[in-house]
Amino acid sequence: MLWWQKFRISFLAIIFSSIFLTLVKVSLTTNLGEKPKSQEDSGRVVMLFEQESITN
């Protein structure tokens, strides 16, 4: 498996380049999915406690 030891560095270099390019793409992208329709959909703890009035 000596060929693999030689090839491994190139393999890691290719993976690193792909991740780096994806990082650039992700950093430049501003629109990430759809905005939540309501506070309940947002998934944030701080947003999900809603004040409600109740009529008994």
């Binding site: 309940e40 998934g43 944030r44 703890v45 947003m47 999900l48 406690f49 809603e50 004040q51 409600e52 009035s53 109740i54």
Partner: peptide, 15 residues
């Protein structure tokens, strides 16, 4: 729902 005489709150799952 936690009810007090002048107001109430609802505890959602994520809270």
């Amino acid at each position: 729902f936690i009810n007090l005489p002048t107001g109430s709150v609802k505890v959602y799952a994520a809270c």
